[in-house]
Write a protein that binds this DNA or RNA. Structure first.
Lengths: 186, 186
DNA sequence: CAAAACAAACCGACCATCTGGTATGTTTAC
DNA sequence: GTAAACATACCAGATGGTCGGTTTGTTTTG
């Protein structure tokens, strides 16, 4: 993204740029548009340079996915800290994280996770993350009501991608708050 | 799919075969595997023959999507008839339809709808269908609780695709019944 | 009713383009 | 000076799509 030029030979910066550019292309034009050439061009590197950082395309895409997962993980941790209520704490953070990912423009959290269903390894990545996270919060976030709330958050996020983007955004905040209230102890 | 051979020059059958084969390939190997050649081979037609029925690949994929939408629509209508309770009738049918699409093997209802987020036209197809259907059942299926139930159904369906397929299928039926109960009048 | 005329259904070869990937060279950092 | 960080050149394969032609079905005509 940012002109990672001028400064010479800074592999970590280049690597970051590659990840960011790949994520952006994926969200703006869909995963099929994420070609080695396109990513390399966007990051002001040649295809050879790209393939120096990632041995093949699969590795690149998976790295992007892993990166997004880490961002999500971090954001959830952040939200967890600001929540005094114990019961359903993780579920609330989960809901809010996906709500942000949906509405805010800063989200690279679109096409990739969906299209990743094709790739078994990425499927496993998500499954593992979700399972481990759920295990960690078993004491506060078990129970079917909370599970439904999380599923609804997924559905809401999915719906956000399907809308004409913009239309009928009204009422979404209300729905999210209603989901949050579902996580409170009855 | 079926040997649409022997019987000569039956365009409607060939067209159906092409749609079915494309749908099957898409669900078994993901949408990127849906190539003109692959679909044509599977339907025992040449690429030229395929392109006689569909002017280009986009038209083919959109036709498949349209077809799946019609199937969903029909199944929902079926479920609607067997439901004596008025309030939340559509929402229950929606939930059950997606639950079936998820668990049953007969579902071609996987990769395509997801990957279709790339294509604006298919996005619109879904949006339009959903909006019109919602308008038709405005009197029985308005209200945020029912909306949440539907969103949760979406999320549940999505989760079904992400699982290792098989593991933890337990409890899913319970969750669905819980969703159904959410649609009853309070 | 048969044959000609037309149109639809389908085939097979071909092509321009793009894709991921390799192999090899050149530059920079330590 | 040596190893990492890149660039350049190149390729083999696949993909979507076009085009001319052939087969099959339908309609028209005498």
């Amino acid at each position: 993204m940012t002109e990672a030029h001028e400064r010479k030979k800074q592999p970590e910066i280049v690597r970051r740029a590659l990840l960011d550019c790949a994520a952006q292309i994926s969200q703006e034009q869909g995963l099929p548009a994420v070609t080695l050439q396109a990513v390399a061009d966007a990051a002001h590197v040649t295809k050879g340079g790209l393939l120096h950082h990632f041995p093949n395309k699969q590795a690149l895409v998976q790295a992007v996915f892993h990166d997004l997962l880490e961002q999500l993980d971090a954001q959830i941790d952040e939200l967890l800290e600001d929540d005094p209520d114990a019961h359903g704490r993780f579920t609330r953070a989960y809901i809010r994280a996906f709500a942000n990912a949906d509405s805010q423009g800063a989200s690279n959290w679109n096409a990739l996770p969906l299209s990743s269903l094709t790739d078994p390894e990425m499927k496993a990545m998500w499954s593992d993350w979700y399972a481990s996270r759920l295990a960690r919060h078993a004491e506060t976030d078990a129970g079917p009501e909370l599970g439904i709330a999380r599923y609804a958050a997924d559905g809401l996020w999915l719906a956000g991608l399907l809308e004409y983007s913009g239309v009928e955004a009204t009422g979404q905040d209300v729905l999210i708050e209603q989901l949050i209230s579902m996580t409170r102890k009855t």
